[in-house]
Design a binder for these strands. Structure first.
Lengths: 129, 129
DNA sequence: GTAACTGCAAAGAGTTTGCAGGGGT
DNA sequence: ACCCCTGCAAACTCTTTGCAGTTAC
């Protein structure tokens, strides 16, 4: 069977069970709990492989490490990042995505990727503080 | 007069004259042409100051340095980043931003910042290659 | 046997920081 | 006198890479 390596499968399993948008370091930490010999470079390498395959999405965050999102058979969704704490939240496209897509492509000639909407904001807990 | 330091003013001038979304390194290079003694740390430090002041926006890019956008008295606009080459393009919100904003805030409780829309895509030149 | 994979340690890119000194009011 | 600023060099964070060995078929 053409399967993934033990380590890669563990990384995928870890990601599938996560409810938020972990950094590489968090994924490394959790994978290490299952297999204490796994190395950081294996985690980084595999995250890149999975991004290439389109299995996960990589979300760049200013002043902090990238975050990753496992794409289950969930609905397409966007991400909103708190500018202050860097936490990432999901949202669904209840608004008119087609209109937006068409407008942007007309203006820039760049083809929008559906998994690629990232919005900066301020989350509730940071707003209070 | 309560003015900026010579160096900070030069950095602002450089940014104002740019038509794209430069990295810190590009800004450093261009500022250095005006004032060869300016240091990289001054550029980084001032970019952070200007982001804090809300004069410029910082755009995180995976697998590459942040990019910066000088906010002139231009219309509010979003950014679309080519996932392949990292280049950033502007677009205006011709679509219904209010609908989007409301939908996202309802779902996540996070308040959207108007200068913070970033979308990943594939630009024309990368699509060909 | 070979292609894709691993851990390790070192290197790389991008950015920040401690320090001693300089400028403006 | 004070505060904010600077250049320099070193430090730091995040990520990638070269290498030698391992695993899966």
């Amino acid at each position: 069977m053409k399967n993934y390596s033990k380590q890669r499968q563990e990384i995928i399993d870890v990601m599938r069970e996560m409810y938020h948008h972990p950094t590489a370091e968090e994924i490394y930490f959790l994978t290490k709990q299952r297999d204490s010999s796994v190395s950081r470079s294996t985690v980084y390498r595999n995250l890149n492989v999975l991004v290439q395959k389109g299995m996960i999405t990589q979300i760049a965050v200013s002043n902090g490490p990238d975050r990753y999102d496992y794409i289950q058979n969930r609905q397409k969704h966007g991400h909103i990042i708190c500018k202050n704490c860097g936490k990432v939240y999901d949202f669904l496209y209840n608004f008119n995505l087609e209109e937006m897509k068409e407008s942007i492509t007309n203006q820039t000639g760049v083809e929008l990727l559906e998994d690629g909407i990232v919005i900066k904001g301020i989350c509730n807990s940071c707003k209070k503080a």
